[in-house]
């Protein structure tokens, strides 16, 4: 009934070659927690599946000499969580990745799959945007880098060119006094899709905020970088007025949909509430870093 082919190349060049040659009929397989569900539902019918998990660069985590991190696109949430240092340096990114699904889903789900699936509610994406992570992609024309926020194009669509594969995430070195956090609002306590997700990454020096980035999920067709919210925090001592201004910027950035999980009004309001709570956690962590 099928004429699907399955390949598990050992090198990135082989993977890109096969992926590009299939001209859009192929799908990359990382953890499969989106792809195999979609195939089973009949929503996706690839002619070729390229499993990237046997490529070392895709499944490794590396702390770079300058103190940054390089995370392979197909690293699972469980493996990232077991890294001895990553969660200390980027607790917000880790908590966002680890919120994806159950223990079993964590055994497979990757940040690369979360980003390339391009759901507006993908939990790791706001935290990665707040962290100012950059992705490396490789295609038939070689390698290029782009900020995480530039990858999603709309629900289920990315700005990767035909034949391009997401290779890794690079997170910058951390200054002293930096902290990040991610919170999502869901109607249950586990195993649900974000109604709103908020990632905050900020730096404090002697109590003054010197840098801040805010990512917002599930309130627009793509996850958003809310530049105005970051700006409202920088230069302040994170007093109530500055935090309220950042919350207002988050509410203003929302272009959500109405659905069974939340109305437009509810999502917009929650975006501001989550911003405040997430800033509180990130600031706490920054104070200790």
């Amino acid at each position: 009934m099928t004429d699907i082919r399955y390949l598990a190349p050992r090198t990135l060049d082989e993977a890109v070659g096969a992926f590009a040659a299939a001209r859009g009929a192929a799908r990359i397989l990382a953890g499969g927690t989106d792809l195999l569900v979609q195939m089973r539902a009949g929503a996706v019918r690839p002619g070729l599946i390229v499993d990237i998990k046997r490529i070392a660069e895709m499944t490794s985590i590396e702390e770079t000499a300058d103190g940054g991190f390089r995370i392979g696109a197909a690293v699972s949430g469980a493996v990232l969580g077991e890294h001895p240092r990553f969660g200390q340096v980027w607790p917000g990114v880790l908590e966002a990745v680890n919120l994806i699904g159950s223990t079993q889903v964590q055994g497979r789900a990757s940040p690369g799959g979360n980003l390339c699936n391009a759901s507006p509610a993908g939990d790791s994406v706001p935290a990665m945007i707040a962290a100012d992570a950059v992705v490396t992609v490789q295609g038939p024309d070689g390698r290029r880098q782009m900020p995480v926020a530039a990858v999603p194009a709309g629900p289920g669509r990315t700005n990767l060119a035909p034949g391009e594969i997401l290779v890794s995430f690079t997170l910058p070195p951390r200054p002293r006094g930096a902290g990040d956090a991610y919170l999502r609002m869901i109607p249950r306590t586990e195993m649900d899709i974000a109604v709103v997700g908020c990632g905050v990454n900020l730096t404090l020096r002697d109590g003054t905020c010197t840098a801040a980035r805010v990512g917002l999920g599930a309130v627009a067709p793509t996850v958003l970088l809310v530049g105005e919210a970051g700006k409202a925090l920088v230069g302040s001592r994170l007093d109530a007025a500055a935090i309220e201004a950042a919350a207002a910027a988050c509410r203003a950035a929302c272009r959500p949909i109405d659905d069974k999980r939340g109305t437009i009004a509810y999502r917009t309001r929650i975006a501001g509430v989550l911003l405040k709570r997430t800033v509180g956690i990130a600031a706490d962590r920054a104070g200790r870093a």
Partner: peptide, 27 residues
């Protein structure tokens, strides 16, 4: 369920818990 939600198909793959309904046999 066949979609990763229920866990009735749980196995370990190289020691990691996974839903076997969301693993290709070829893997």
């Amino acid at each position: 369920c066949g979609s990763g939600d229920c866990g009735a198909c749980t196995i370990t793959l190289d020691g990691r818990l996974v839903c076997s309904c969301l693993v290709l046999a070829a893997e």
